[in-house]
Design a protein around this nucleic acid. Sequence first.
DNA 1: GTCATCGGCGCG
DNA 2: AAAGCGCGCCGATGAC
Length: 595
Amino acid sequence: MGGAVIAYDTETTGLNVHRDEVFAYSICEADSSAATVYPEVYRLDGSAVRRYTSRVKLEDIWKEGKAPKVMHKSKFDLPMTERVLGRSLKEQPFHDTMIQSHLIRSNHPSHALKDLAWELAGIPKDDEDAIKKFLKGKKGDRNYSMVPEPIMTEYQERDALRTILLHHFFYPQIKSDPKMLEVYNNELDLIRTSIDIERRGMMLNPQRCHTLINSTERAALGVLDDIEQYAGRRINPDSPNDLHWLLFQKAGLPITRYTKTGKPCTEKEVLFDLRREFGHHVIESVLKFRSWSKAVTTMRSYLKLMDADHIIHPTLNTCEADTGRESCSNPNLQNVPKMGVLLNPYAVPVRSLFMPRPGHVIFYIDFSGIEFRLAVYYSRDQTLINLVRSGGDPHALAAEIFFGDQFRNERDPAIKKTMRNAAKNMNFAIIYGAGVATIAAGLNLPVSVVMARYQEYKRRLPGLAALSERMTKLAQAQGYVETVFGRRLYVPRGQAFVATNYLIQGTAADILKRAQVRVDKYLKAATGGEVAILLPIHDELVIEYPRKRMADVQEVLRSSVELMQDFPEIDVPLDAEMQVAAANWESKSPFKLTA
DNA sequence: GTCATCGGCGCG
DNA sequence: AAAGCGCGCCGATGAC
């Protein structure tokens, strides 16, 4: 028996959770049979309410002890409602049909309410069309609160109905599978932490941001001048036409690769190859311009998105990615450029713009090599399991296999490191189904040589070498792979070879999502929220820590790391490392717990 | 003017 | 037959 629930949907003046406001809401109550349901529509100002004046009703809906509310994208409706009510709803039970949809069919083309309700219940989308049509005729600032009463009411009624129907379609499927229910419940907890993370946001240094924008822009313009000197006319390197002319006509460089639509490829790897062979200064200029102009627009967007307190509030998407990962947008703080990346020689120190709030430092806890460890776990390769358990280095082992005595006898640590790095790339290539040709290219060795050494690799590490094919076949047969935690990841049709990647990325996502919930709960209980998560980044938690609590730091971080690593389901150890930044995100230094 | 697509690139 | 993957965001481009 499902028990009674109330579908709940807000209408707002915009999509910004921190700024825009609720002006209307609708509900739809239903018991477990859901035999007859009547949507009810309300307006906050009481002007167009059907049955009640609104404020009383909204309070009533969210009174303690009422039935759980079902929302579609609760991460939007919950904080919006909290702002209207002026109180926290964190103890309130709820459901989310978007999460349900995502768990049941991770690769569905759309988890949008209207699309799902049309597909599963045949509810037409013309209510939404009517709103769009109305707003299209309006000029200037437009939002849903301007939509006339009959159109809006129809829309609200249908959304409440849609939500309750989806819940009654999806939730029984989830509840019938204990592991899937556990994944679902963690996703609901994750909504709570994500709301708090978005609300807290990250602090930007606006002065530094302006300065860096100016200097970087000057440098980029200087590069344009250099190119003009050489080319005899102004060139826009972002324009394919201009760039193709510059590289392949004027400079006479050869076209080494084409894009899928048959145009000359000018991506960085191609430019690196051309640079190595011809060393033409115009290549350098293009690389510089791209990196610097992109950094400028990125930094400008930060200034636009920053609030009056210099805080950037990104959006965390917890159920968008096909692999179960979280993503981040407006802005994406999970891909902020950093210094010291080999393939990015002209990097701009954008991370240095992010800083701890006054009186705080930032800690970073990241899983080291989690993807490879999970590959080892799923492969059941006994050699590698034992090696990882005993603290050995699987990538050095791969280097020995691929480079043999050449690696073993190498005395120069720099060269040795390069070889290990190549072998590490190979380990991943093999896990994720690369062919011998790709591997040979990555190792810079003849295909014939790699062929022989790959045979040896398969003999020494049979489990790992077989993982990709095993998962690919499984995905081909059933359409999905399932993580150890019970998350099903549907693999794109005709692309079964991505199965291993989905499995491993999805498992890492399960782990970080659970870790995030645990650490968040712990930090709230142990520090009253003074220590808080700033951001999840796939295998890492960023944590802001007040200096005045430094007396606690050992205990708090030790507990956090322990919570992150406590996964008895995975029988290879999950190592985590810590770093600390006092000034900004760029200047991190290692942090060790005392013994 | 608006929209979708592409190539390109940052992070993991 | 062969293939590492995921995400979000940008400017350019061409169709409507």
